[in-house]
């Protein structure tokens, strides 16, 4: 009997908790809103004036700072370590498992999400709490520029966002002109100047970039061609036999403690024999944010030092 009573009380308590939340939102004054279409094609209604932002992706955090709205960030992930000010902002968990209660308690006007964070599942919870969720899914450097402009539009910093995007575009154009019209897509032609390279994401087990990764395109825009560009999925585990037989002329390492050196299977590859190995900061390489152009510049200079004198 006692147990039954306890369960009933517990149930009432739980119901009471879950009921109390939605009653708040109708009471608040509905602010003026604008509609945006995000990268998933959803129409998102966002308050015109945004004072509180939560970012659930390091790339989104970097974009918000880049367009000059970093002081309005009230929540970021534990992965958000750039720029340095982001370290001071309240943490809402990591990209994969953000804490919904913390986010709701921060009362953000908008939550910025990257599909890389697989957070689409949570958008429902947030939207039920009257919080707008804007999803970005940049799959190419052009998308990064587009995302920066949309963020500027949403956050009301159009001018500075355009300035940042234009500057990044100018730097990309500078790389392009330095490379002198090297093809950026299609199969390798005989001596078209591009360099066959392998991007090593993890040394052991051996992970690389595939068809679905934006890095295949970054590499292509930097005068290289990824030897695994046709492998399905974005970050496949690749057979060591295949990796050995690909004989890349250059290797790019996503720099981390376990990934400082090329895997042993490359010992006899032209890349290792000629010392053509570049370490790129893993954060810069893995985030489709404003610093992706930095990665592109580093790779282009590494592959074609003669063209950047």
């Amino acid at each position: 009997m006692k147990l039954k009573f306890g369960i009933i009380v517990l149930c009432l308590f739980l119901v009471g908790c879950s009921n109390s939340k939605p009653t708040i939102s109708p009471l608040t004054v509905t602010p003026e809103k604008r509609a945006f279409t995000d990268d998933l094609g959803r129409t998102v209604s966002v308050p015109t004036e945004i004072k509180r932002i939560v970012s659930l992706a390091p790339s989104a955090t970097e974009m918000v700072y880049a367009v000059g709205a970093g002081d309005r960030l009230v929540g970021v992930t534990t992965f958000c370590n750039y720029p340095e000010q982001a370290l001071e902002v309240a943490k809402v968990g990591d990209t994969m498992t953000p804490n919904m209660e913390t986010i709701v308690a921060l009362k953000p006007d908008v939550v910025l999400v990257s599909t890389a964070s697989q957070i689409e599942n949570f958008t429902k919870t947030l939207e039920q709490n009257g919080i707008a969720v804007y999803v970005m899914n940049p799959t190419h450097t052009a998308d990064v520029l587009k995302s920066i402009k949309s963020i500027g539009d949403i956050l009301g910093t159009v001018a500075s966002a355009n300035r940042v995007a234009d500057e990044l575009e100018r730097r990309q154009a500078a790389i392009r002109s330095a490379l002198g019209g090297m093809p950026e897509s299609g199969p390798m032609q005989f001596d078209d100047g591009r360099i066959r390279l392998f991007v090593q994401i993890s040394r052991e087990p051996l992970f690389t970039i595939g068809k679905g990764s934006f890095l295949s395109q970054v590499v292509a825009a930097a005068g290289g061609i990824s030897v695994t560009a046709d492998v399905p999925t974005a970050y496949p585990k690749i057979s060591k036999e295949t990796a050995l037989s690909l004989r890349p002329n250059a290797i790019i390492l996503s720099d981390s403690e376990d990934n400082r050196e090329p895997n042993e299977v490359f010992a006899n590859s032209p890349a290792v024999k000629n010392g053509r190995v570049l370490r790129v900061n893993a954060d810069i390489l893995s985030r489709p944010g404003p610093r992706l152009i930095d990665a592109m510049e580093q790779i282009a200079r590494f592959l074609h030092p003669d063209k950047f004198r």
Binding site: S202, E204, P205, S256, D258, A282
Partner: peptide, 10 residues
């Protein structure tokens, strides 16, 4: 995260 990937696969 980097160590995690190799370990979960393993």
């Amino acid at each position: 995260a980097a160590k995690l990937r190799s370990f979960t696969f393993w």
